[in-house]
Amino acid sequence: MLRWELFKLRHQKRTYLGLGASILVPVLFVIAVHLRRSHERGGGFAFSDYVDKSGLAIPLVILLFGAIWLFPLIAALVAGDIFASEDHNGTLKTVLTRSLERWQVFAGKSLAAGTYAVVAILLCGTVGVVAGSLQSGFNPLQSLSGTIVSAPRATELVYFSLLIYLIPIAAIVCIGLLLSTVTHNSAAAVVGTLMASLVFQLLGILPGLGGLQPYLLSTQFNAWQGLLRTPIDWTPIIRAVWICGIYGFVSIFTAFVVFIRRDVAGG
């Protein structure tokens, strides 16, 4: 089932839209870094001072900014569509009258949406590493604690950061799957997933809601920064695991129950 879901994804334009963005964004970012004038250097955010010194800082800066809408949107493009498009095409009834149990269909689609998100994030990171290294060199990276990390070790940390970043992305995928299952409408599910991500961002900046901050999904997008400290700060990473686990489990369990019990009256 997973194989055929991935096969279907390979034949859909929206897949390439997301993967294309994963390639294009780091490339555009590197071009912008290359073209900016010297007096514009620095930006006041993590690693902003280092993008000219080490190309390995570039994927990390992209992770920082991509959390707002880029990566949630890329993840939502497929997760929000994967069930709803079956309703749109009317193919759910075709699939469910073959020799597959509903849970198998659900599992295949969920794993395919997850696989796509993993590929998109790793692709973006890899393009960032390569393009960044071409622009600023494959140089040692200064960690958030001020220590210098060798280029090979920094590369390892970049990829571990990408993996940590996949934790909140997985939660976003689960929210997308839920909306796709419930709304039966691809556009509503994609936009709804993105809106959910933006609402978390908004809650994080509203005055008076500071107590919520550690438990917001948006906060977990910064958990990877714990890896870039010396020694590694595991606290935000562990928190991201259980908080995203709750968001993800509640979403995907609800989606599963809805999908298993739903009447396929249209489509």
Binding site: K8, H11, N89, G90, T91, K93, T94, T97, G267
Partner: peptide
């Protein structure tokens, strides 16, 4: 099939 048969 029910209603029109549907394919990708």
């Amino acid at each position: 099939f029910v209603e029109a048969p549907a394919f990708y």
